[in-house]
Amino acid sequence: MRALPRLMVAPNGARRGKADHPALPITLPETTATARACFDAGADGLHLHLRDDEGRHLLDTGRYAEALAELARTVPGMAVQITTETAGRYAPPHQRRVALDSGADMVSVSIREITEGQDRATTAAFFEDCAAAGIAVQHILYDRGDIALLCDMLPEALLRAPNLQVIHVLGRHANRQESDPADLDPFLTEMARRGLAPDWAACAFGRAETACLVSAHERGGKCRVGFENSLWHADGSLARDNADRVTALRRALAALPA
Score class of each variant (00 low, 15 high):
Leu170Asn: 05
Ala124Ser: 11
Leu141Ser: 02
Gln95Trp: 00
His168Phe: 07
Glu113Met: 07
Ala133Tyr: 01
Ala197Ile: 04
Gly171Phe: 01
Ile167Phe: 01
Ala136Ile: 05
Ile135Met: 11
Ala121Pro: 00
Ala87Asn: 13
Gly103Tyr: 09
Val109Ile: 15
Ala174Ser: 12
Leu150Pro: 01
Asp101Phe: 06
Met153Val: 07
Gly117Leu: 06
Tyr90Ala: 14
Pro162His: 04
Gln138Leu: 06
Pro181Phe: 03
Leu154Ile: 03
Asp152Gln: 14
Asn175Arg: 11
Glu128Tyr: 00
Ser215Asn: 11
Ser179Gln: 06
Tyr90Ser: 14
Ile111Arg: 01
Asn175Trp: 11
Thr83Trp: 01
His139Trp: 08
Thr189Val: 14
Ala132Gly: 07
Ala132Ser: 14
Met153Trp: 12
Ala204Thr: 02
Thr210Tyr: 01
Ala216Trp: 01
Ile167Ser: 00
Asp199Leu: 06
Thr84Tyr: 04
Ile82Ser: 13
Ser108Ala: 12
Gln118Asn: 07
Ala133Pro: 01
Gln95Phe: 01
Leu213Val: 02
Cys203Gln: 06
Asp129Ala: 15
Thr86Val: 07
Glu128Gln: 12
Pro181Ala: 14
Ala148Gly: 10
Asp105Pro: 00
Ser179Asp: 08
Cys151Pro: 06
Met106Glu: 13
Leu213Ala: 08
Leu158Arg: 07
Ala204Asp: 03
Val214Cys: 03
Ala192Tyr: 05
Phe127Val: 03
Phe126Cys: 09
Ile82Asn: 10
Gly145Ile: 08
Val98Gln: 09
Leu150Val: 03
Leu196Phe: 03
Leu213Phe: 07
Cys130Ile: 12
Ala148Arg: 13
Thr86Gly: 12
Arg144Val: 12
Trp200Lys: 00
Ala192Met: 08
Thr210Phe: 00
Met191Phe: 11
Ile82Arg: 10
Gln165Arg: 13
Ala99Gln: 04
Leu100Asp: 13
Val169His: 02
Asp143Ser: 12
Glu113Cys: 08
Asp185Trp: 11
Thr123Ala: 13
Glu156Cys: 02
Arg160Pro: 06
Met191Asn: 09
His139Pro: 03
Trp200Leu: 01
Thr123Met: 05
Ala104Trp: 10
Arg89Ile: 11
Gly206Phe: 04
Arg89His: 12
Gln177Phe: 02
Arg144Asp: 02
Ile114Thr: 10
Leu158Thr: 10
Thr84Leu: 05
Leu164Arg: 02
Arg112Leu: 05
Ala104Leu: 13
Ser108Asp: 15
Ala91Met: 11
Arg96Gly: 07
Thr210Lys: 03
Gly145Pro: 08
His173Tyr: 15
Trp200Pro: 02
Val107Arg: 05
Asp199Glu: 15
Arg160Thr: 12
Ala157Ile: 05
Gly171Val: 00
Ala201Trp: 01
Met153Leu: 14
Asp183Ser: 04
Gln165Ile: 00
Gln118Val: 10
Phe127Ser: 09
Gln177Lys: 02
Met153Ile: 04
Glu128His: 03
Tyr90Leu: 14
Gln138Tyr: 05
Ile167Asn: 01
Gly103Ile: 06
Arg112Pro: 04
Ser179Val: 03
Asp101Tyr: 03
Gly103Trp: 10
Pro155Thr: 12
Asp143Pro: 08
Val214Ala: 02
Leu100His: 05
Pro93Val: 07
Arg207Cys: 05
Glu85Ile: 06
Arg144Trp: 00
Gly145Arg: 09
Ala87Gly: 08
Ile82Val: 12
Val137Asp: 03
Gly134Tyr: 10
Ala192Thr: 14
Asn163Asp: 15
Ile135Asp: 15
Val98Tyr: 08
